[in-house]
């Protein structure tokens, strides 16, 4: 068990999330079952008030989770100094079996809570509160994701063992035969890059056409594709090493913390993109242009940043890696 101040901070806030989350969960069950915008019953008025409490709790959790997620990565990076063999967060995360699962949960939960808040805003725009039951039913579901994440967090810090020697990112993300993700390294760069830029071009096109369904699909596809492109291609230019593929190391100080910018633009861009699409699909009358715009700007910034690395490298050295 690691009992350093940073870990305690994360666990304390986790405990808080669990407490509030459970409270919100219990209230949500009642709202999802009994809410009826047409009822005049006293209970309905009480439920309307409780709905606001749940929404407030969810906002609290979400807006705290955003910086806490960055802090979690930062902490994992620091812990990598303590764990033999780990060079960055990748090694730490992989030192326990479910490390990557934990990471996935953290990202997925941020998306889910974000979408919930988008739905909430949408709901409060219409006098009949059309999505209230739906959004609280959804929260009942999301709550289990939250609980899963919190338990993973707890077991993760509990299982971290400073005496254990772990693999560093060099072995985890390499093309050698032992690596579990070896097969993706066989994807040739030209195909990968044309897919990457092609999807981005599609993104731009659909942004101008405000095609909700297409935009949704493009954004959903863009997340895994971008991560893949980061690991296989762009990462190597950030490190200027053809063999270093780690998607975590560039979060470190040596690379001017550029990873935070990269991931914030990627996740932010796709989040707004998906939200814009879902809102437009749910409410055909409006286009939610501001969300489309945020999505476009962030995604374009993301593409610009990652593209700058190989271009600058070529400009300086006259060759590709």
């Amino acid at each position: 068990m690691m009992l350093s101040p940073d870990v305690i901070a994360i666990l304390v806030l986790d405990a808080l999330f669990l407490l509030f989350g459970t409270f919100a969960f219990v209230l949500s069950l009642g709202i999802a079952r009994h809410f009826d915008a047409h009822s005049f019953h006293e209970r309905q008025y009480a439920l309307e008030k409780k709905a606001l409490l749940v929404a407030t709790i969810i906002q609290y959790i979400f807006y705290l989770k955003l910086p806490l997620f960055l802090f979690f990565i930062f902490t994992s990076d620091t812990i990598s100094n303590l764990i033999t063999g780990a060079m960055c967060a990748a090694g730490v995360v992989n030192s326990v079996d479910f490390g990557l699962l934990l990471f996935a949960f953290k990202i997925i939960n941020l998306y889910l809570f974000g979408f919930w808040l988008v739905l909430h805003t949408l709901d409060l725009k219409n006098e009949t509160l059309p999505y209230t039951r739906a959004k609280f039913s959804l929260f009942v579901l999301f709550f289990f994701f939250l609980v899963a994440e919190i338990f993973c967090d707890f077991y993760f810090f509990n299982a971290l063992n400073i005496d254990k020697i772990v693999s560093c990112c060099g072995t985890l993300f390499s093309a050698t035969s032992t690596s579990s993700i070896r097969f993706i390294f066989e994807l040739p760069h030209p195909i990968l890059l044309s897919m990457f830029y092609g999807t981005f071009a599609l993104h731009v096109m659909l942004f101008f056409r405000k095609d909700a369904l297409g935009f949704l699909l493009v954004n959903l596809f863009f997340i895994p594709l971008s991560i893949l492109a980061l690991i296989l291609f762009f990462g190597t230019y950030i490190y200027e090493l053809p063999t270093h593929h780690c998607p975590f190391c560039f979060l470190q100080k040596e690379y001017h913390y550029v990873g935070y910018l990269i991931y914030i633009t990627l996740f932010g861009g796709t989040f707004f993109g998906i939200s814009a699409s879902i809102m437009s699909l749910a409410d055909q009358r409006k286009t939610y242009a501001s969300f489309y715009r945020y999505s476009f700007y962030l995604t374009a910034l993301f593409v610009a940043i990652v593209s700058a690395y190989p271009l600058l490298y070529f400009y300086r050295n006259g060759v590709w890696l």
Partner: peptide, 8 residues
């Protein structure tokens, strides 16, 4: 008015 949720 009597049917309007508090928010509205």
């Amino acid at each position: 008015i009597s049917k309007l949720p508090d928010h509205f």
